[in-house]
């Protein structure tokens, strides 16, 4: 019974430590906000953290795994095993409401509510994160990272990043 309590306490502490890790390319978002942090499990006091990539080739994954190891070391938990899971595939629907607000404040338009194929191929209406106008246009389907596209506001003339729905 004691061991079980210890494990659940360890799991909670490990989750808290891991969830402070930020995305190196969008440092206002934690991996918990993004939904990249999937699971923290404890087996015989050994911690295993599961993360999922946003895009297959996302180069931030190695860095995120390293940061998780460091965060748990710093929290005195010791080095975890970091495992990558592909299924179910990550979707922008997993991004928390808090994460969406943080993105907007940071100047990146958050993804539209549902990353469905209809949204991908249909008409998109993306609000400018600076002035809120939806009088915007796409400049480039691909942006500075795999997860972003480049847009421009026709109202305030500011270019901005849009976190693609996926």
């Amino acid at each position: 019974m004691v061991a079980v309590l210890d494990d659940s306490d360890l799991r909670r502490r490990a989750w808290e430590a891991a969830s402070t890790v930020v995305d190196p390319e969008i440092p206002v978002l934690t991996i918990a906000d993004l939904g990249v942090l999937r699971e923290v499990e404890v087996h015989d006091s050994r911690v295993e953290v599961a993360i999922t990539p946003t895009y297959s080739g996302c180069p931030a994954m190695n860095m995120i795994a390293l940061e998780i190891e460091l965060a748990l070391e710093r929290a005195g938990i010791g080095r975890p095993t970091v495992r990558t899971v592909l299924s179910p595939a990550w979707t922008t629907d997993w991004m928390s409401e808090e994460g969406r607000n943080k993105l907007r404040e940071y100047g990146i338009a958050p993804p539209q509510a549902s990353g469905s194929r209809r949204a991908l191929f249909g008409e998109q209406q993306v609000a400018c994160p600076q002035c809120g106008s939806v009088n915007t246009e796409v400049l480039s389907e691909f942006g500075s990272t795999s997860c972003k596209a480049l847009w421009r506001c026709k109202n305030c003339r500011e270019p901005f990043d849009y976190f693609k729905c996926h």
């Binding site: 990539p53 895009y55 297959s56 080739g57 996302c58 180069p59 400049l139 480039s140 389907e141 691909f142 942006g143 500075s144 795999s146 480049l150």
Partner: peptide, 15 residues
């Protein structure tokens, strides 16, 4: 824009 697009798609495929 296309430089970024092609590199991004290449990265997806590499992944």
């Amino acid at each position: 824009e296309e430089d970024m697009a092609l590199a991004n798609m290449g990265l997806d495929l590499l992944g």
